[in-house]
Design a protein around this nucleic acid. Structure first.
Lengths: 193, 193, 193, 193
DNA sequence: GATGAATGAGCATTCATTCAT
DNA sequence: GATGAATGAATGCTCATTCAT
């Protein structure tokens, strides 16, 4: 479990940022969780803001790479959209410890770091494009019914974010919640087709 | 524009809580915004936690009342569901200033006050029931196709929360985003019907 | 000896700033010296920088007023210059506790607060003018021999600053050091006259 | 331009100590300026205090040697005093980069290192003696008018320190300031002679 | 009701220094 | 000689809260 001190700080930050949010995650808590002294955090990451920026960016990139990989295994547009949704929801389950951190990322979340950072927006945008491209592909290869791809991408994202938040934090979600969401969108996007 | 000092504190707290979140909203900022001295806040509301609890509860109740009123004008289940969605989305637009506060309310949001409070959960639950009852009604009067009402309520909520967050905070949402969501659910809930 | 807490903080800051300089005068030391808690310093003065700015400005103004008063009792230019020098040197003896603070004031001192502040420069300039005007007056009423008033003012100031620093801090200065300086300048400014 | 790492640290320390003072000159800044890592400073100089002690001592000795050399070229006491003043003022101009460091040296300056160090006092004393001996010589060979040599040395030093501080740091000094000071003392020390 | 002085714990960050490599 | 990770104390400052007026 123990890597280098820098790694431990990173892991502790990701976990606590998800659990407590930016403001309530303090150097002291991170240091205790990582098993290092407080001074080392600034030594390795410069500042609180930079630390959490690094955390968010890393997680977003990891998710992006997993999503991209999932698309590789799809044969058509509808399959791509389905895989994207499945992968996203699965990621939220497999990485419960830090997925909430991702949900806090601007623009997924209301607040995060004191200032908005382009770095994070860029990563979110890349993930958004991945889904939008899949939807567009589905419309072109006629595996999805005709619709506005931008709009549909928005709706799918809204639902997934809403659903994973509900599931990860407080609400007791119904059994089979995630499979139902997948089939919900499958029906929706092909019905009348 | 100026009411009593207590009212001013309340309004300032609602606005700042929405804009800045719990941790970054300080007595000093609230006092400056409200045009009163710091000491008066605790004098009127007891503590920071109680103040924001009051704010959240009040807003949730206001939304609940508006939603309930919208249902009064529906003639069948599908109409009720539609009105609920329309009312919710409209409320988020009409009350931009404090709607973000609502989005921070547990269980709608990851974090809000340090501790979860039943008071808030109860209010959220009441709103949830309002929609769930409408869906159930729609299934019974056959204006909605058959489905699991709990599941569908969840999905609708997830989408609305996701959508309003996107729209209220950072993302440039497409034009006609909200009407599209309404018709999206209308199609979805009646298709094949 | 005990005034209000704010006064105590001010007095402690003036004393410690003189003794220790800006960087080594900490909130903790000021708070202990003033018999208050640390938080109260920022409450009353905003920040360390503002606190010491206030201290410097106040002392400079006090010195200025005393110097101005001394000029009132002079009947001609030479008398004004003499009184200025006597008053300045006496002030450094009478207010040993905080006079060193003044010596740290920009532009009297190399470093003081992190940033140069016009407020302080303006006060120093006013004191400089007081002497320069006296010198000019002396040249005009022929109680001083002809010379460049700006230059002479500079030299007098340099000597007084150098002398008071020597006397206030570390060096054992000769007995009658200050009277000698006064008569030194008297001789110098009138010789060959 | 680049010598050994140790030399670079020394040069960087001299420069920064002059510019920023003791407290604000940190290992990090010195290391960056010298192009070495932080750890190396302590490795070579032991501690911050020792480093700056070395810097001050070296500069004081360099100035002393230059002053001593200038006296070699004088034929009488008045010439020695004049050369001393000229050399001192010139040194402050030629070595602007680190001369301010010297002005911070105890007992020339209020504060420098946290503790007074005899090493530095001794060097300052040696420089003081150099001038005092010249004055005494001048009185003996009747090139200076009769006066208290200790007192006069003090006054000359006060003026020079005051003048170089003014000139090196903040104030716009008049043109010909230094030549004027030289002739000022020449007149003063010989007038009525 | 209203003020603002006062508190004490906590915050992010800096710093000189040590030490294993 | 040289590196940079690691430490722990200290710093300026903020904050929610209390309380006398």
């Amino acid at each position: 479990m123990k890597g280098t001190a820098k790694d431990n700080i990173f892991a502790a930050a990701a976990k606590l940022l998800g659990q407590l949010g930016y403001a309530e995650t303090t150097y002291k808590k991170v240091a205790r969780e990582a098993g290092v002294t407080e001074g080392l955090i600034a030594h390795h990451f410069g500042s609180k803001e930079k630390l959490f920026l690094k955390v968010e960016q890393t997680i977003l990139r990891d998710l992006h790479d997993k999503l991209e990989e999932s698309l590789f295994y799809s044969s058509d547009g509808m399959g791509a959209v389905t895989n994207f949704i499945k992968c996203f929801l699965r990621y939220s389950v497999d990485n419960k410890e830090w997925f909430t951190t991702l949900l806090r990322c601007s623009p997924f979340i209301l607040e995060s770091s004191p200032k908005d950072h382009k770095v994070i927006s860029v990563e979110c945008e890349k993930i958004f494009r991945l889904l939008k491209n899949s939807v567009t592909q589905g419309i072109e290869d006629h595996t999805l019914k005709d619709c506005d791809p931008h709009m549909i991408t928005y709706i799918i994202f809204s639902t997934m974010i809403g659903a994973t938040r509900a599931n990860n934090i407080r609400l007791k979600t119904p059994a089979n919640f995630y499979p139902e969401i997948v089939s919900f969108f499958q029906n929706m996007l092909t019905s009348g087709h």
